[in-house]
Simulated assay, not measured.
Amino acid sequence: MAPHSFALTMPSDIRFGAGRRAEAVDVTARIAGGGTVLLVTGSSDRHAGPLRQGLEDAGVTVVTARAVGEPTVEAITDVVRTARGARARVVLGVGGGSVLDTAKAAAALVDNGDPLDHLEVVGKGRALQNPVLPWIAVPTTAGTGSEVTRNAVLTAGRVKVSLRSPHLLARVAIVDPDLLQGLPRTPLVHGALDALVQLVEPLISCRANPVTDALARQGLAASLKALPGADTTQAETRENLALASLLGGICLANSGLGAVHGLAGVAGGMLGAPHGALCAAFLPAVLEADLKALRRDPNPQAQQRLDALGPLVTGDPTATATEAIQALTTLTRTLRIPRLADLGLTDGHVDELVQGALAASSTQANPLPLTETEMRDAVLASR
């Protein structure tokens, strides 16, 4: 095996544990230093409301921006306009992955111009030239790991693209598992499955490293312990779900993902279907495609990583990748994850989906490059 060479990037201040959301007020007020805070949240004030009140009680001026639905270029532009008008100096994001992506994108763009100057694929992809506003992440769902990643996923037309920079890392990430209590089961499960895939793909990624391996193994154990029950009335389950999401975010930011996310990202823009459901629908067939690619182009290291999934997923030390795929297929069926046809995929989508996934940045970290035929077979098998 070649000598390891890798770099790690993540927020320098990560706070995890039940009740730690209360720290967001003091942290935000300290960083704001008397300046205005832009609070980015969703349609509900359930969790953001008490933090806003705490900041106002501390004498901090707070301006609120709502992020409803997937963040689009147009929506980000509106939030940035709000931030500039208020002369915000700190951004506090309280919500799910879309809210956090909106918060970090707004923090990046307040002093850096048009989103299209910096977006990948649909824009000019330019590096950010000016400083990014400090932002604080308080996730209220478990799945995306956006609180510890360095990119914001935005929708431009029918395409999901990233605003990417190491400067997008949160100044502080506060992960309180108790915020998961009371989440509706369907989005909770979809988020948990997104986190699961964000642990599996870094484990088999061609960019994996020893640190992300250790974190992904810990996160995968937590994820599988929480699923399929996902009962958030139990403190242990909440902690496992939140931990899996956090560790998955760190892993994907440092080892990349794979063809599952390459397909899910393109399909999400095409179909508007839940990202976690798409990831789960693609996962078994893409892993099968990886095994076929290994038969075509043997790679001992990739084979070893895929086979390592067997014991990790099944608990059987003799299991291989084939048994892992069978177990993951059973899990998705137990959780009643719809197939792609049920999510709106038709024959007319397949060519565009395959071509988009082959070009996607996530796909480049797949353990082996997949051919167009192998990618197409994976899509058809997922239908």
Results as ranks from 00 to 15, higher is better:
Thr332Gln: 07
His261Pro: 02
Gly249Leu: 02
Ser245Met: 03
Gln301Asp: 13
Leu328Ala: 02
Leu312Ile: 08
Gly258Tyr: 08
Leu309Val: 07
Glu239Trp: 01
Val313Met: 03
Met270Gln: 14
Leu309Trp: 03
Leu294Ile: 08
Ser255Asp: 11
Leu243Val: 08
Met270Lys: 13
Glu288Gly: 04
Pro311Gln: 13
Arg305Glu: 00
Gln326Phe: 15
Leu263Ile: 09
Pro338Val: 11
Arg295Ser: 10
Gly268Asp: 04
Leu309Lys: 05
Asn240Lys: 08
Asp316Cys: 01
Leu294Lys: 03
Thr314Leu: 05
Ala281Ser: 13
Glu323Met: 04
Gly272His: 00
Leu328Asn: 10
Gly272Ser: 09
Asp297Gln: 14
Pro300Thr: 13
Gly249Glu: 11
Pro298Gln: 12
Asp316Met: 10
Leu278Thr: 02
Leu263Lys: 02
Ala293Arg: 04
Ala259Arg: 00
Pro274Met: 04
Ala273Lys: 01
Leu287Gly: 04
Arg296Pro: 00
Val260Ile: 13
Gln301Asn: 14
Ala293Asn: 09
Asp290Gln: 12
Pro300Gln: 10
Leu287Phe: 10
Pro298Asn: 12
Ala267His: 05
Lys292Ala: 15
Leu306Asn: 01
Thr330Phe: 09
Leu243Ala: 14
Ser255Asn: 03
His261Asp: 00
Ala264Lys: 05
Leu291Asn: 03
Thr320Cys: 12
Ala280Met: 13
Ala264Val: 02
Leu271Asp: 01
Gln303Phe: 05
Leu283Tyr: 00
Pro284Asn: 12
Glu323Pro: 05
Leu340Glu: 01
Leu335Val: 11
Gln304Thr: 11
Ala289Ser: 11
Leu291Pro: 13
Ala244Lys: 02
Gln303Tyr: 09
Asn240Phe: 08
Pro284Glu: 15
Ala327Arg: 15
Glu288Asp: 11
Leu241Phe: 12
Gly269Ala: 09
Ile325Arg: 00
Cys251Ser: 05
Phe282Gln: 01
Ala244Glu: 11
Ala281Trp: 08
Asp290Met: 06
Arg336Lys: 14
Ala293Val: 12
Gly258Met: 06
Ala242Arg: 04
Glu239Gln: 14
Pro300Glu: 14
Gly258Trp: 04
Asn299Thr: 07
Leu241Gln: 05
Leu331Met: 15
Met270Leu: 15
Asn254Ser: 03
Gln304Glu: 15
Pro338Asp: 07
Met270Arg: 13
Pro317Arg: 07
Arg336Met: 04
Gly276Ser: 10
Leu263His: 03
Leu252Glu: 06
Gln326Lys: 14
Glu323Ser: 13
Gln303Trp: 05
Asp290Gly: 03
Pro317Gly: 08
Leu331Arg: 14
Gly256Tyr: 07
Leu287Val: 09
Asp316Ala: 12
Ala244Met: 01
Val313Trp: 12
Ala273Asp: 01
Thr314Ala: 05
Ala264Ile: 00
Leu335Glu: 12
Ala324Ile: 13
Thr318Val: 08
Glu323Lys: 05
Pro284Gln: 12
Ala259Trp: 06
Leu271Arg: 07
Gly269Leu: 10
Leu312Ser: 08
Ala327Gln: 15
Leu241Ile: 06
